[in-house]
Protein backbone atom coordinates (compact mmCIF):
# COMPACT_ATOMS: atom_id res chain seq x y z
CA UNK A 1 0.00 0.00 0.00
CA UNK A 2 1.35 3.44 -0.80
CA UNK A 3 2.15 5.84 2.01
CA UNK A 4 -0.79 8.07 1.14
CA UNK A 5 -3.13 5.14 0.87
CA UNK A 6 -1.98 3.78 4.20
CA UNK A 7 -2.35 7.15 5.84
CA UNK A 8 -5.80 7.62 4.37
CA UNK A 9 -6.90 4.26 5.68
CA UNK A 10 -5.76 5.25 9.14
CA UNK A 11 -7.45 8.63 9.08
CA UNK A 12 -10.67 7.08 7.88
CA UNK A 13 -10.58 4.78 10.88
CA UNK A 14 -9.98 7.83 13.11
CA UNK A 15 -12.97 9.56 11.57
CA UNK A 16 -15.20 6.54 12.09
CA UNK A 17 -15.63 6.00 8.36
CA UNK A 18 -14.09 2.55 8.47
CA UNK A 19 -14.69 0.16 11.30
CA UNK A 20 -12.09 -2.33 12.43
CA UNK A 21 -13.57 -5.13 10.36
CA UNK A 22 -13.95 -3.15 7.14
CA UNK A 23 -10.46 -1.73 7.47
CA UNK A 24 -8.56 -4.81 6.55
CA UNK A 25 -8.52 -6.60 9.87
CA UNK A 26 -7.05 -3.81 11.94
CA UNK A 27 -9.13 -3.11 14.98
CA UNK A 28 -9.66 0.57 15.59
CA UNK A 29 -8.06 0.20 19.00
CA UNK A 30 -4.75 -1.07 17.67
CA UNK A 31 -1.96 1.02 16.30
CA UNK A 32 -0.95 -0.73 13.10
CA UNK A 33 2.53 -2.15 12.98
CA UNK A 34 3.91 0.22 10.36
CA UNK A 35 2.85 3.17 12.48
CA UNK A 36 4.39 1.69 15.59
CA UNK A 37 7.69 1.19 13.84
CA UNK A 38 7.69 4.79 12.65
CA UNK A 39 7.30 5.94 16.21
CA UNK A 40 10.26 3.85 17.32
CA UNK A 41 12.38 6.21 15.33
CA UNK A 42 10.80 9.60 15.87
CA UNK A 43 13.60 11.55 14.24
CA UNK A 44 12.95 10.07 10.80
CA UNK A 45 12.97 12.81 8.18
CA UNK A 46 9.61 13.87 6.77
CA UNK A 47 9.20 12.00 3.53
CA UNK A 48 7.02 13.89 1.05
CA UNK A 49 3.69 12.06 1.02
CA UNK A 50 4.21 10.93 -2.58
CA UNK A 51 5.26 7.65 -4.04
CA UNK A 52 8.42 7.56 -5.96
CA UNK A 53 8.08 6.25 -9.44
CA UNK A 54 9.62 2.90 -8.67
CA UNK A 55 7.23 2.06 -5.88
CA UNK A 56 4.32 3.01 -8.09
CA UNK A 57 5.58 0.77 -10.85
CA UNK A 58 5.94 -2.08 -8.41
CA UNK A 59 2.47 -1.58 -7.07
CA UNK A 60 1.05 -1.61 -10.57
CA UNK A 61 2.91 -4.78 -11.36
CA UNK A 62 1.47 -6.40 -8.29
CA UNK A 63 -2.09 -5.44 -9.20
CA UNK A 64 -3.89 -8.58 -10.30
CA UNK A 65 -4.93 -8.48 -13.93
CA UNK A 66 -8.69 -8.97 -14.20
CA UNK A 67 -9.64 -12.20 -15.87
CA UNK A 68 -10.94 -11.65 -19.39
CA UNK A 69 -14.39 -13.21 -19.67
CA UNK A 70 -16.16 -14.19 -22.87
CA UNK A 71 -18.94 -11.74 -23.63
CA UNK A 72 -22.39 -13.33 -23.43
CA UNK A 73 -23.53 -12.41 -26.95
CA UNK A 74 -23.06 -10.33 -30.08
CA UNK A 75 -20.14 -9.09 -32.12
CA UNK A 76 -17.45 -6.66 -31.13
CA UNK A 77 -17.91 -3.64 -33.37
CA UNK A 78 -15.42 -1.37 -31.60
CA UNK A 79 -12.98 -1.91 -28.74
CA UNK A 80 -15.13 -2.48 -25.65
CA UNK A 81 -18.44 -2.35 -27.56
CA UNK A 82 -20.66 -5.21 -28.73
CA UNK A 83 -23.79 -5.27 -30.86
CA UNK A 84 -26.55 -7.88 -30.64
CA UNK A 85 -29.20 -7.98 -33.36
CA UNK A 86 -32.38 -10.09 -33.32
CA UNK A 87 -35.45 -9.96 -35.51
CA UNK A 88 -38.98 -10.97 -34.51
CA UNK A 89 -42.20 -11.27 -36.45
CA UNK A 90 -44.57 -8.45 -35.58
CA UNK A 91 -47.68 -8.07 -37.70
CA UNK A 92 -49.14 -4.59 -37.40
CA UNK A 93 -50.56 -1.74 -39.42
CA UNK A 94 -47.94 0.26 -41.32
CA UNK A 95 -49.35 3.55 -40.06
CA UNK A 96 -50.82 4.61 -36.76
CA UNK A 97 -52.44 7.58 -35.07
CA UNK A 98 -51.23 8.53 -31.63
CA UNK A 99 -53.50 10.99 -29.83
CA UNK A 100 -50.58 12.77 -28.21
CA UNK A 101 -48.97 13.35 -31.62
CA UNK A 102 -51.93 15.00 -33.31
CA UNK A 103 -54.50 13.28 -35.48
CA UNK A 104 -52.24 12.61 -38.43
CA UNK A 105 -51.41 9.04 -39.24
CA UNK A 106 -47.69 8.47 -39.42
CA UNK A 107 -45.44 5.75 -40.68
CA UNK A 108 -44.74 3.07 -38.07
CA UNK A 109 -41.18 2.79 -39.39
CA UNK A 110 -40.40 6.14 -37.80
CA UNK A 111 -40.83 4.76 -34.27
CA UNK A 112 -37.67 3.95 -32.34
CA UNK A 113 -38.46 2.26 -29.03
CA UNK A 114 -35.47 2.62 -26.71
CA UNK A 115 -34.41 1.70 -23.23
CA UNK A 116 -31.13 1.94 -21.35
CA UNK A 117 -29.55 -0.08 -18.59
CA UNK A 118 -27.50 2.11 -16.29
CA UNK A 119 -25.02 1.87 -13.46
CA UNK A 120 -27.66 3.06 -11.02
CA UNK A 121 -30.33 5.53 -10.10
CA UNK A 122 -28.20 8.03 -8.18
CA UNK A 123 -28.40 10.67 -10.94
CA UNK A 124 -25.83 13.24 -11.97
CA UNK A 125 -23.17 12.99 -14.66
CA UNK A 126 -21.46 10.05 -12.95
CA UNK A 127 -24.29 7.64 -13.73
CA UNK A 128 -23.76 6.02 -17.12
CA UNK A 129 -25.65 3.75 -19.49
CA UNK A 130 -23.80 0.51 -20.19
CA UNK A 131 -26.48 -0.86 -22.50
CA UNK A 132 -28.83 0.76 -25.01
CA UNK A 133 -31.54 -1.33 -26.68
CA UNK A 134 -33.73 -0.12 -29.55
CA UNK A 135 -36.59 -1.72 -31.43
CA UNK A 136 -37.75 -0.57 -34.88
CA UNK A 137 -40.46 -2.01 -37.11
CA UNK A 138 -40.18 -2.77 -40.77
CA UNK A 139 -42.33 -4.94 -43.06
CA UNK A 140 -43.95 -7.09 -40.40
CA UNK A 141 -40.77 -7.52 -38.45
CA UNK A 142 -39.41 -6.00 -35.31
CA UNK A 143 -35.69 -5.54 -35.38
CA UNK A 144 -34.06 -5.28 -31.98
CA UNK A 145 -30.51 -3.92 -31.75
CA UNK A 146 -28.63 -3.79 -28.47
CA UNK A 147 -25.32 -2.10 -27.77
CA UNK A 148 -23.43 -2.89 -24.61
CA UNK A 149 -20.06 -2.15 -23.11
CA UNK A 150 -17.45 -4.78 -22.34
CA UNK A 151 -15.03 -2.04 -21.32
CA UNK A 152 -15.53 1.57 -20.38
CA UNK A 153 -13.40 2.53 -23.36
CA UNK A 154 -16.33 1.53 -25.61
CA UNK A 155 -18.69 4.22 -24.30
CA UNK A 156 -17.95 6.85 -26.90
CA UNK A 157 -18.36 4.41 -29.78
CA UNK A 158 -21.65 3.22 -28.27
CA UNK A 159 -23.00 6.75 -28.03
CA UNK A 160 -21.86 7.57 -31.57
CA UNK A 161 -23.52 4.44 -32.88
CA UNK A 162 -26.76 5.25 -31.07
CA UNK A 163 -26.66 8.88 -32.23
CA UNK A 164 -26.24 7.57 -35.77
CA UNK A 165 -29.48 5.58 -35.48
CA UNK A 166 -31.45 8.75 -34.94
CA UNK A 167 -32.59 10.33 -38.20
CA UNK A 168 -34.49 13.53 -38.69
CA UNK A 169 -37.64 11.37 -39.13
CA UNK A 170 -37.24 9.40 -35.91
CA UNK A 171 -39.94 9.44 -33.25
CA UNK A 172 -38.55 8.26 -29.91
CA UNK A 173 -40.67 5.90 -27.82
CA UNK A 174 -39.91 5.11 -24.21
CA UNK A 175 -41.28 4.36 -20.77
CA UNK A 176 -40.25 7.16 -18.40
CA UNK A 177 -37.54 8.07 -20.93
CA UNK A 178 -38.39 11.76 -20.97
CA UNK A 179 -37.31 12.24 -17.42
CA UNK A 180 -34.79 9.41 -17.04
CA UNK A 181 -33.16 7.79 -20.11
CA UNK A 182 -33.04 10.80 -22.44
CA UNK A 183 -31.51 13.30 -19.96
CA UNK A 184 -29.00 10.67 -18.85
CA UNK A 185 -27.96 9.95 -22.44
CA UNK A 186 -27.78 13.67 -23.20
CA UNK A 187 -25.37 14.11 -20.31
CA UNK A 188 -23.17 11.24 -21.41
CA UNK A 189 -23.26 12.43 -25.05
CA UNK A 190 -22.17 15.87 -23.92
CA UNK A 191 -19.46 14.42 -21.73
CA UNK A 192 -18.12 12.37 -24.64
CA UNK A 193 -18.48 15.29 -27.01
CA UNK A 194 -20.77 13.38 -29.39
CA UNK A 195 -23.17 15.56 -31.35
CA UNK A 196 -26.72 14.27 -31.56
CA UNK A 197 -30.30 15.25 -32.31
CA UNK A 198 -31.85 13.71 -29.20
CA UNK A 199 -33.17 17.05 -28.00
CA UNK A 200 -34.94 17.94 -31.27
CA UNK A 201 -36.81 14.71 -31.95
CA UNK A 202 -40.43 14.09 -30.95
CA UNK A 203 -40.62 11.74 -28.00
CA UNK A 204 -43.60 9.64 -26.89
CA UNK A 205 -43.25 8.61 -23.26
CA UNK A 206 -45.91 5.98 -22.52
CA UNK A 207 -45.57 6.29 -18.75
CA UNK A 208 -48.04 9.13 -18.37
CA UNK A 209 -50.81 7.79 -20.64
CA UNK A 210 -50.43 4.44 -18.88
CA UNK A 211 -50.79 6.08 -15.51
CA UNK A 212 -53.93 7.89 -16.60
CA UNK A 213 -55.54 4.68 -17.77
CA UNK A 214 -54.37 2.18 -15.17
CA UNK A 215 -53.53 4.07 -12.00
CA UNK A 216 -56.83 3.10 -10.40
CA UNK A 217 -56.70 -0.53 -11.46
CA UNK A 218 -53.17 -1.68 -10.75
CA UNK A 219 -50.99 -1.61 -7.62
CA UNK A 220 -48.33 0.33 -9.54
CA UNK A 221 -47.48 1.40 -13.05
CA UNK A 222 -44.13 -0.26 -13.44
CA UNK A 223 -43.52 -1.54 -16.93
CA UNK A 224 -43.29 -5.12 -15.65
CA UNK A 225 -46.67 -4.81 -13.89
CA UNK A 226 -48.41 -3.43 -16.99
CA UNK A 227 -46.78 -6.09 -19.09
CA UNK A 228 -47.99 -8.91 -16.87
CA UNK A 229 -51.46 -7.61 -15.98
CA UNK A 230 -52.48 -5.88 -19.18
CA UNK A 231 -50.45 -7.35 -22.03
CA UNK A 232 -50.25 -10.82 -20.43
CA UNK A 233 -46.62 -11.24 -21.34
CA UNK A 234 -44.89 -13.78 -19.12
CA UNK A 235 -41.13 -13.53 -18.67
CA UNK A 236 -39.06 -16.52 -17.74
CA UNK A 237 -36.04 -16.24 -15.50
CA UNK A 238 -36.19 -12.46 -15.67
CA UNK A 239 -33.44 -10.53 -13.92
CA UNK A 240 -35.01 -7.59 -12.07
CA UNK A 241 -33.84 -4.26 -13.48
CA UNK A 242 -32.44 -3.31 -10.10
CA UNK A 243 -29.86 -6.09 -10.37
CA UNK A 244 -28.57 -4.96 -13.75
CA UNK A 245 -25.82 -2.64 -12.45
CA UNK A 246 -24.31 -5.41 -10.32
CA UNK A 247 -24.49 -7.85 -13.24
CA UNK A 248 -22.54 -5.55 -15.51
CA UNK A 249 -19.98 -4.64 -12.82
CA UNK A 250 -19.43 -8.31 -12.14
CA UNK A 251 -18.67 -8.84 -15.83
CA UNK A 252 -16.46 -5.75 -16.04
CA UNK A 253 -14.44 -6.94 -13.07
CA UNK A 254 -13.95 -10.35 -14.62
CA UNK A 255 -16.08 -12.20 -12.11
CA UNK A 256 -19.06 -13.58 -14.04
CA UNK A 257 -20.84 -13.05 -17.33
CA UNK A 258 -23.97 -15.09 -16.60
CA UNK A 259 -26.15 -12.29 -15.34
CA UNK A 260 -25.06 -9.87 -18.06
CA UNK A 261 -26.68 -12.29 -20.52
CA UNK A 262 -29.87 -12.07 -18.48
CA UNK A 263 -29.67 -8.24 -18.58
CA UNK A 264 -29.58 -8.46 -22.38
CA UNK A 265 -32.72 -10.63 -22.35
CA UNK A 266 -34.45 -8.26 -19.96
CA UNK A 267 -33.60 -5.18 -21.97
CA UNK A 268 -34.65 -6.86 -25.22
CA UNK A 269 -38.04 -7.73 -23.79
CA UNK A 270 -38.45 -4.17 -22.53
CA UNK A 271 -38.14 -2.60 -25.97
CA UNK A 272 -40.43 -5.22 -27.53
CA UNK A 273 -43.00 -4.55 -24.82
CA UNK A 274 -42.77 -0.83 -25.62
CA UNK A 275 -44.03 -1.46 -29.16
CA UNK A 276 -46.82 -3.71 -27.88
CA UNK A 277 -47.83 -1.28 -25.16
CA UNK A 278 -48.03 1.49 -27.75
CA UNK A 279 -50.41 -0.51 -29.91
CA UNK A 280 -52.46 -1.44 -26.87
CA UNK A 281 -52.78 2.13 -25.64
CA UNK A 282 -53.50 3.53 -29.10
CA UNK A 283 -56.44 1.13 -29.47
CA UNK A 284 -57.60 1.82 -25.94
CA UNK A 285 -57.38 5.61 -26.18
CA UNK A 286 -58.81 6.11 -29.66
Amino acid sequence: MSRVAEKLRQLRIDAGLLTGSSAGGHSSCVVPASRASASANPTVAREPPRLDVLRKLMRQREEPQPRKLDAPAGDEIAPGLRLVERTFNYEASATLVVPAMGDIAFDRRRLLCFDTETTGLAGGVGTRAFMIGVAAWKDGQLCVRQLYLTAIAGERAMLQMFAGWLSAETILVSYNGKSYDAPLLKGRLRLNRVSHRLAELPHIDWLHPTRRVYKEHLPNCKLSTIEREVLHIVREDDLPGSEAPAAWLSFLRGQSSVNLGRVLDHNRQDVITLMRLGDHLVSKLS
Binding site: S2, R3, V4, A5, L8, R9, R50, L51, K56, R59, T119, G120, L121, A122, G123, G124, G126, T127, R128, A151, I152, A153, P245, L249, L252, R253
Partner: peptide, 29 residues
Protein backbone atom coordinates in the same frame (compact mmCIF):
# COMPACT_ATOMS: atom_id res chain seq x y z
CA UNK B 1 -3.09 8.61 -8.51
CA UNK B 2 -2.62 7.45 -4.91
CA UNK B 3 -6.07 8.72 -4.02
CA UNK B 4 -7.56 7.12 -7.12
CA UNK B 5 -5.99 3.83 -6.08
CA UNK B 6 -7.70 4.07 -2.70
CA UNK B 7 -11.04 4.82 -4.35
CA UNK B 8 -10.64 1.98 -6.84
CA UNK B 9 -9.89 -0.36 -3.96
CA UNK B 10 -13.14 0.59 -2.30
CA UNK B 11 -14.95 -0.14 -5.57
CA UNK B 12 -16.23 3.30 -6.55
CA UNK B 13 -13.75 3.78 -9.40
CA UNK B 14 -12.85 1.45 -12.25
CA UNK B 15 -9.29 1.53 -13.51
CA UNK B 16 -8.99 0.72 -17.20
CA UNK B 17 -5.95 1.57 -19.29
CA UNK B 18 -4.98 5.08 -18.23
CA UNK B 19 -8.49 6.03 -17.14
CA UNK B 20 -10.22 6.02 -13.77
CA UNK B 21 -13.99 6.09 -14.18
CA UNK B 22 -16.78 6.48 -11.67
CA UNK B 23 -18.63 3.20 -11.46
CA UNK B 24 -20.68 3.21 -8.24
CA UNK B 25 -24.38 3.81 -7.86
CA UNK B 26 -24.09 6.80 -5.59
CA UNK B 27 -23.95 10.57 -5.66
CA UNK B 28 -20.77 11.36 -3.76
CA UNK B 29 -21.34 15.09 -3.33
Amino acid sequence: DDFLGVLAESGVLHHEGDRWDWIADSYPA
